[in-house]
Design a protein around this nucleic acid. Structure first.
Lengths: 373, 373
DNA sequence: CGCGGAAACTAATACGCATTAGCAGCGCGA
DNA sequence: TCGCGCTGCTAATGCGTATTAGTTTCCGCG
C-alpha cells in the first residue's frame, strides 16, 4: 500500500501524509513558525520524525520564491574562482568564508557565471543568477558596474571583497593598503633611504591606487607633510622633495612584463635611488619585473639595494618569502565579508571593515649602501 | 496613469501588459519556446521591446522552481573543502569541477557541513542536506558509508571522486593507481633493480590499497607472472621471487611519521634492496618518512639508492618535484566527475572512469649502484 | 456553405513552500 | 444557554515562471 516515495526528493506534502497532518503544519513545524501558531508537542514530534525518516530537505528555489530565505550565500567572482593557476585564485579568502559561513549555518553557492570555458565573454545574465541565494559575496579586481548597480538598486544584499567605491551603496570589506604601504615606505625612510621608486602595473584598480596613495603618504609623512610627486611611464619620474630631502617616483609598467632593464636600474641608482618597492597584484608582474631587473643589474638586496613589496610575494616564488612587505589577512577578510553579508541579511548596517595588514620586516631591505656616489 | 512599476523588478506580467499580450506569450518569447509554438514576428518584437524598456530580468528562483531542476551540483567533502593548508585541499579537482559545471550551466553548492568549527564531530544530518542540490560530488579518503548508502538507495544522484566500492551502487570516477604504480615499479625493474620496498601508511583507503596492488602487479609482471609477497609491519618483510629474482616487500608506517630510521635503511640495503617507493597520501607521510630516513642514512638518489613516489610530492616540498612517480590528472578527474553526475541526472548510465596517470620519469631513480655488496 | 486545419494566441495549472484566513472543539463567565 | 476566547489545526492563496490544453480567427477547398 505504501507507494509514497515515487521518486526524487520528498516534499512537505509527503512528510505531511506520513505524519498524518497537513502540509501547512509541516511548514509550520519545520520552518521557523514565526507566526507563533500553537502546535501540540506530540504533533511536532510526529512531523519531525516523519521528516527525518523521509530525509526531507527544503527546496531552496521554492523557499526563495515564497519570499523566505534559503540559507545560501552566493560566491561570485568575475574570473574563474578556481583558475588553473592557484596563484590567481581566491583560495585564501575562501578559507575564511567557508569557516564563517559554516559557523552561521549557511551553505555556499559558487556561481560559475564568469568561468564559462575560459572565454572571457561572460554569459550576459550570469550575475543575475545570484538572486537565487539570500545574498552574495563578490570577488574581482575589475567588475562590470552596470549589472552590479542594478542588483544594488534592487536591494539585493551584496558584499564585495576588496575596496570598491564605483558602485554607490555597494558594501565592501577591504584591507588597508594605504596604511600598510605607508608603513613599508616609512620603514625604508627610517633605514636611511632618501629616494624611493614604486613600480606598479598600468591598471587602475582600487588595490593599485591605494598602494600608490600609501606610498605617497609614507613619503609625505617622512618628508614632513608634503606629498610625493606623481607621474606616468618609465620616463616620467618626478620627485617630491621634503624637508629631509625624501623623494619618491612612480613607474608604471606598460606591457605585462619586462619593461624594466638592468640599465634602467643602474640609471636609477645613479640618480640616487637606493630603494625600490613593487606593488603586489594577482599576477605579481611588478615584483617580477623589479626583481628581474635588479638581478640582471647584478645587484643584491639588501646590501646594494633595498627591495620591498607592497604585499606578499607570488606563491610560485616561495624563495621570496623573505621579502620585506606586508601580509594581507585574507582569511580574515573572507570571514569579515560573511559577517557583513549576514548583517545585511539581518537588516543591520554592517560596520565598515578595513583590515590591518601585518608588516613583514623581511630581509630584502636595510640601510642604503654607504659607499654610493 | 502609469502606476505599473510598483516596486522592484518587473515581472513577466508587467512586460505582458506593456506589450499588450499575455504572460504566457512573454514567457514564450523570452524563454526558449522549445514547444515550437508559432509567434508572429511583430509580437515577438513588441515583447522584446517591452522587456528591454522595463529592464526585465527573470527570477532565477521561479525559473528553477518551475523547471523542477535547480541546476545546482553539490560538492561535499568529508573534511573542510577549503582547509587552511592548501596542500590538503581539493583545489586541483575543483579546477576541473568548476570548469565543467560552468560549461553545462550548473552552479555549485559547497556544503559547509563537515567543517563545522574544526571539531571532527560532523553535524549528524550534515550529509542529508546535499539533497537540496540536484546531485552531489563527494570527496574524501574515508567516508561514512551508512548515511551514504541511504542516499544511494533513495536514488539521489551521487558521484564519488576516487575509487569507492564499499557502497554498492555508488558511482565513482577514479584514477588508475594500479596501472600507474605498476608502471613505476616496471621502470625500476627495467633499470636493473631486483629488490624493491614499498613504504605505505597503515590505512586501508582504496587509494592505498590500489597502489599496493599496482606495486605487486608491477613486480609480478617483471618476475614472470607471480605476485609479490605481502605482509605487515616494519619487520614483516617477505619476498616473492620470480624468474629474474625480482622481489618486493611492503612496509606499513604505524605511527603518523618517523617510524623509519637510518638504521632501517642501511639494513634494507644490506639485504639487497636498491630501490624504495612510497605511496602518496594527502599528508605525504610515507614519502616524508622515506626521504627523511634515506637522508639521515647519508644516501643520495639516484646514485646510491633509487627513490620513487606513487603519485606527486606534497606541494610544500616543491624541491621534490623531480621525484620519479606519476601525476594524477586531478582537474580532469573533477571534470569527469561532473560529466558522470550530469549523466546520472539525465537518466543516462555514466561510463566508468578510470583515468590514466602520466608517468613522471623524474631524476631520483637510476640503475642500482654497481659496487654494492 | 460548411468544415478541416493551420496560425497566433491565451487561460489555467503546476512547481514547493510560506503565510493568511479561518474553522472546529472546548471550557467558562454571564 | 449563549457567546467569547483559546487551542490546535487546515484550506486557500500567492510567489514568478514554464507548460499544457485549449480558443479564436482566418483560409482554402470540396
Amino acid at each position: 500500500m505504501t507507494e509514497k516515495k515515487r521518486r526524487g526528493r520528498p516534499r512537505q506534502a509527503e512528510v505531511a501524509r506520513l505524519a498524518g497532518v497537513s502540509q501547512t503544519t509541516v511548514s509550520l513545524v519545520l520552518g521557523g513558525n514565526k507566526q507563533g501558531i500553537v502546535i501540540h508537542e506530540d504533533t511536532r514530534r510526529r512531523v519531525l520524525e516523519a521528516a527525518r525518516t523521509l530525509g526531507y530537505v527544503p527546496d531552496p528555489a521554492a523557499r526563495r520564491l515564497a519570499a523566505a530565505q534559503n540559507n545560501l550565500l552566493g560566491v561570485f567572482s568575475f574570473t574563474a574562482t578556481f583558475p588553473t593557476d592557484p596563484a590567481h585564485s581566491y583560495y585564501p579568502f575562501l578559507v575564511g568564508v567557508e569557516r564563517e559561513a559554516a559557523a552561521r549555518g549557511f551553505d555556499l553557492v559558487l556561481f560559475t557565471g564568469s568561468s564559462t570555458g575560459g572565454a572571457g565573454a561572460e554569459a550576459p545574465g550570469a550575475l543575475e543568477r545570484v538572486r537565487l541565494a539570500d545574498g552574495c559575496l563578490l570577488f574581482g579586481r575589475h567588475v562590470p558596474t552596470g549589472p552590479l548597480r542594478r542588483l544594488v538598486e534592487d536591494g539585493f544584499p551584496l558584499v564585495h571583497v576588496g575596496r570598491r567605491d564605483e558602485v554607490e551603496g555597494l558594501t565592501w570589506v577591504g584591507a588597508d593598503y594605504v596604511a600598510a604601504s605607508a608603513e613599508v615606505v616609512r620603514h625604508l625612510v627610517a633605514a636611511g633611504h632618501r629616494r624611493v621608486v614604486l613600480v606598479r602595473e598600468d591598471d587602475d584598480a582600487p588595490a593599485s591606487t591605494d598602494r600608490e596613495a600609501g606610498f605617497r603618504q609614507g613619503l609625505a609623512a617622512a618628508a614632513g607633510g608634503e606629498g610625493a610627486g606623481g607621474d606616468q611611464g618609465v620616463e616620467g619620474d618626478q620627485g617630491a622633495g621634503g624637508e629631509k630631502g625624501v623623494e619618491g617616483a612612480v613607474v608604471r609598467l606598460r606591457a605585462p612584463a619586462e619593461e624594466l632593464t638592468a640599465d634602467w636600474v643602474v640609471a636609477q641608482r645613479a640618480a640616487g635611488v637606493t630603494a625600490f618597492v613593487a606593488e603586489e597584484t594577482d599576477t605579481g608582474a611588478a615584483w617580477r619585473a623589479l626583481r628581474g631587473a635588479v638581478a640582471r643589474a647584478g645587484l643584491r638586496a639588501p646590501d646594494e639595494v633595498s627591495l620591498a613589496l607592497l604585499g606578499s610575494p607570488p606563491p610560485d616564488l616561495p624563495a621570496d618569502g623573505e621579502a620585506t612587505g606586508f601580509d594581507i589577512p585574507r582569511a580574515e577578510l573572507g570571514a569579515a565579508a560573511v559577517r557583513a553579508l549576514t548583517d545585511l541579511l539581518a537588516g543591520r548596517r554592517p560596520g565598515g571593515t578595513l583590515a590591518r595588514c601585518a608588516f613583514r620586516p623581511g630581509s630584502t631591505t636595510g640601510p642604503p649602501p654607504t659607499a654610493t656616489t
